[in-house]
Amino acid sequence: MALESVDGSMDVSEPTTRHCFVLDLHDDPELIAGYERWHRPGGPPVAITRSIRQAGIAALEIWRAGPRLFMILEAGPDYDAARKAEQDATDPDVIAWEQLMWQFQRPVAWAAPGEKWAAAARIYALAEQPDPPVAAPSA
């Protein structure tokens, strides 16, 4: 699936699988601003960006509406979520990053115990909708 975001930053040319997740931030303007500072270009440590890319994640964006975050992840054919979780659990850089981020984040109410980013279920796709009937030309 070729995909491009509104601002052109999520351009993926190889086949990918989209995964979407939600997470909340603490509803505190200073914490939200701090979280956004950590996620500006060059904000995350190089080891975190490297870890994401090496896992086969072709593109990743985080969007915010109020204190709610939406992550859109485009996984390449080599991505394995279980393998990524195993690697993250033993990577000191990822562990430190996750501990740092947790001061800003809180799970959504329906998250399973210990779950951080909760998976979102797709409920609509324009591509799956039938084409509307063509209107007859007016006389």
Rank of each mutant, 00 (worst) to 15 (best):
A55P: 00
G114T: 01
P132R: 13
P44Q: 14
E74F: 05
R68E: 12
S13K: 15
Q105C: 10
A135S: 11
S9N: 14
R68H: 10
R83S: 07
R122N: 00
A135N: 10
D131L: 12
L100P: 00
G56R: 02
P29V: 01
A127D: 15
V6N: 12
H19D: 05
S9Q: 13
A96N: 04
I123H: 10
P133Q: 01
P77I: 01
P137A: 03
P15K: 07
I48C: 11
V46C: 08
A121H: 14
Q105V: 05
I48S: 07
A89W: 04
L23Y: 12
R53G: 06
L69S: 01
Q103I: 07
H39Q: 09
R106G: 08
K116H: 12
A120R: 06
L60M: 15
P92T: 02
Y124P: 03
V46K: 14
W63Q: 13
S51I: 00
E86P: 00
A139D: 11
A121R: 13
T49L: 14
W38P: 00
D24Y: 00
V94Q: 15
D131E: 14
V108F: 05
E30M: 12
P133E: 02
L31R: 13
F104I: 01
S5E: 05
E30D: 14
P29I: 03
M1V: 02
A58N: 06
I52C: 03
A75C: 06
Q103S: 11
F70T: 05
E115A: 02
D91K: 03
A58E: 11
S5F: 05
A127K: 07
A119P: 00
Y35D: 01
V22T: 13
E115S: 02
P133G: 01
S138H: 10
D80S: 02
M10A: 11
P132W: 09
Y35N: 01
R40S: 10
D7R: 10
Q87L: 13
T17V: 12
G76S: 03
A120Q: 14
A65Y: 11
D11P: 00
A119L: 11
P107F: 06
R40A: 13
W117L: 04
M10K: 08
W110Y: 07
M71A: 15
S5N: 07
G114Q: 04
A65Q: 14
R64D: 11
D7V: 03
A121V: 07
P45C: 07
R83E: 13
I57S: 02
Q103G: 02
H26E: 15
V108G: 06
P107L: 09
T17R: 15
P77R: 14
T16F: 03
A33I: 02
V108Y: 01
G56H: 07
A121Y: 09
D27Q: 05
S5H: 06
R50T: 06
R37K: 12
A59K: 05
Q87Y: 05
P29C: 04
V108R: 09
W63Y: 15
E128G: 12
Q103L: 09
A121G: 09
I52S: 13
R40L: 10
A2I: 10
I62F: 11
S5T: 12
A85C: 03
E4W: 00
A135V: 05
I95C: 13
G43C: 01
P137R: 09
R122C: 04
L31A: 01
I95H: 10
A59R: 07
W102C: 09
L73D: 02
E86H: 06
E74Y: 08
A121S: 09
L23Q: 15
A89H: 04
Q54R: 11
V46M: 14
P130Y: 02
D88P: 03
S9L: 09
